[in-house]
Nucleic acid binder design. Sequence first.
DNA 1: TGCCAGGTATAGG
DNA 2: CCTATACATGGC
Length: 282
Amino acid sequence: MFRIEYPHLDMRKIADSGQIFRFNIYEDEFSLVAGDKLLFIKEDGDGYILSCSEEEFNDFWLDYFDLRLDYKEYEKNIPKSDLFLIKATEYSYGIRILNQDKWEMLISFIISQRKSIPAIKSSVEKLSKVYGKKIDMQVPGFIKNIDPDTEFYSFPTPEALANASIDELNACSLGYRSPYIEATSKAVFRKDIELEELSKLNDTELLAALMSLKGVGIKVANCVALFGYHRIAAFPIDVWIKRMIDEHYDGEFPLELYEGYAGVIQQYIFYYGRESVKHSSN
DNA sequence: TGCCAGGTATAGG
DNA sequence: CCTATACATGGC
């Protein structure tokens, strides 16, 4: 167990920000599966109690939650006249761009196309349950809201998915994406493409390399770059972002104001846009 | 119940 | 280069 307290870190918002699909909320507690790691979190005043040791936190989770960067820097160029973005940024205070696993982001965002976030989460869980490994870790005693019998599964390896049949993949509600997952898994497993090696490429080259894979277009490539490679200049445009840009910027967002980190701004707009619709529709 | 979802591949112009 | 269309299926 280890307690942390940082400015600009809100687990609830991050869990619900659409950049991660295996971060679940149980009132004031959370479960988070990242690759083959499992973390339990409990709100504790202005901080959080984590199920990991201080050493594991420093070795892995500190960078995972992107806690070395000062997010105030990303807000300084927002014009005072841009009331929408000022509001979106305030509303999103505490969201950080996580450093997630490249392979997991690639598969998760191929699945994400034309699916709602709950449906994406459901598909990723099914895939993990079928092709991942049961994580050997007890729900710790300080976690009260999660059934101790709950089983958690790691995200499947490229090998596991490359060896799956189309019929088996179909059982995970992938729909027409099953052949994409199959082709991409095989390409990664055969090392036709090496995801770690792509880190050496610049942003443009990285997007092009990712888009050579079946089922990866410009939007998915940008999400993988942003959330898997921490290319915070990447600016994925999905239906929500397009809607916000059309409504508040007359169809053209001033990217040049946020050079090098527009992806962070994108995430604020996405979160604020979705949450405001969520709350106005009931 | 019918509509829509963190889009992409493909064909046709 | 651009635009139009098909695509499987769950969640609400």
